[in-house]
């Protein structure tokens, strides 16, 4: 099953009654099963430095609910698999950001949210202590532009990340972690 149709249904087929009236067997593609599990419960690390942090909080709160995508916030990197870098990263903070990224267990994903995390934002030209883009420090999967991006834009970014996760190959010779 391709990822476009029936986003919610897993790529598995249920054969009732093949091994007896009470047995249910599911046959499917291991890759798609694992990807479905991973993209449906992206727990994100609460890493909000600046203004984009407020939009992140509002995206997770009453009106634009991130919980319906399975994304709940965790305070510790050990329990999260998505880091949404929301806000400006300064040189003083850079080392801690890399340490937090290294503390997250695999598989992990990074969304760079907002202009400051993408390229340094309005501080690109004249500021001496802003890292001009978080991809100078850690690998980024999705960039969400905006200053700050609306919660709908962030949700669009998370859906794009879900599409990326759907394409990953986890088993076999060409698999990467």
């Amino acid at each position: 099953m391709s990822g476009d149709k029936a986003q919610a249904a897993p790529a598995l087929s249920v054969l009732p009654g093949s091994l007896g009236p009470e047995a249910h067997v599911m046959i499917g593609n291991a890759d798609k099963f694992v990807n479905w599990c991973r993209r449906s419960s992206l727990w994100y690390l609460l890493f909000a430095t600046a203004c984009c942090g407020i939009e992140l909080m509002q995206a997770g709160a009453s009106r634009y609910d991130l919980d319906r995508f399975g994304a709940v916030f965790r305070a510790t990197p050990r329990q999260s698999d998505l880091m949404i870098v929301a806000g400006t990263i300064t040189h003083k903070m850079a080392e801690r950001l890399v340490r937090l990224y290294e503390q997250m267990p695999e598989p992990k994903y990074v969304i760079s949210m907002g202009s400051c995390a993408n390229t340094g934002g309005p501080f690109f030209k004249d500021s001496y202590c802003v890292v001009k883009g978080v991809d100078l420090l850690i690998p980024v999967d999705v960039y969400v532009p905006g200053c700050p991006p609306r919660p709908e834009a962030l949700i669009d970014g998370i859906l794009a990340l879900q599409k990326i996760i759907d394409q990953k190959k986890n088993f076999g010779k060409t698999a990467k972690a």
């Binding site: 600046a50 400006t88 003083k92 903070m93 309005p122 030209k125 004249d126 202590c129 802003v130």
Partner: peptide
């Protein structure tokens, strides 16, 4: 403190008065 020091005061010396308005937002 200092993990979000973005040099707003130095930027103020390099832009004009009207151009500084978006920086006061942040």
């Amino acid at each position: 403190v200092g993990y979000l020091h973005r040099a707003l005061e130095k930027i103020g010396e390099r832009v004009t008065y009207a151009q500084y308005m978006p920086f006061t937002d942040r």
